[in-house]
């Protein structure tokens, strides 16, 4: 299994290829369109992330060791962002996710370019990823 840092630095170098933001968006849109479909039964109110202009569903499953994320959104750019987060965090242990840095999002310019307001849900998604990690870690500790 590759480390979170390896995935995130791969993402950073993919984005480095593009000079202007329109190309970066184009790439995000491609990523959005290619995001594996979430099972419709997980598109529930419970999995809906609050505070975005578009609706985002994030579903997490814990196999006892690693967390597996799936996501969907009705906006393509948001799906693209979700795709990046899933690539970075899915298939890792709660501890690894909690210890990981979100610096790669700054490096590709996502945080500054997609203003950290309620509009894009990037911060809400990251918060939710970390919340799941914390919850599963607690559950792990108790069993």
């Amino acid at each position: 299994m590759i480390k979170i840092e390896e995935s995130t630095s791969a993402i950073v170098s993919e984005f480095d290829v593009f000079d202007d933001w329109m190309d970066k968006y184009n790439y995000l849109i491609e990523l959005g369109k290619s995001l594996p479909l979430i099972d419709d039964k997980y598109k529930t109110e419970n999995n809906l992330i609050e505070g975005c202009q578009s609706r985002v569903w994030l579903h997490a499953e814990f196999d006892g060791t690693n967390i597996h994320f799936t996501a969907d959104s009705d906006a393509v750019i948001t799906k693209g962002i979700a795709n990046l987060l899933i690539r970075a965090y899915s298939g890792h242990t709660p501890q690894e996710i909690l210890d990981s840095s979100t610096e790669f999002l700054n490096e590709i310019g996502l945080t500054q370019h997609l203003s950290p307001t309620r509009s894009n849900g990037l911060l809400s998604m990251i918060k939710q990823v970390k919340m799941y990690a914390l919850a599963f870690k607690t559950k792990q500790g108790m069993s």
Binding site: M22, Y25, C52, Q53, A75, V76, I77, T78, S119, N120
Partner: peptide, 20 residues
């Protein structure tokens, strides 16, 4: 096309519109 997607690209053209 979701208004958020459209608004994000329109912004890249230096055009301020409201979405939502």
């Amino acid at each position: 096309i979701h208004p958020y997607d459209a608004g994000t690209i329109i912004d890249q053209f230096g055009i301020a519109v409201r979405t939502g």
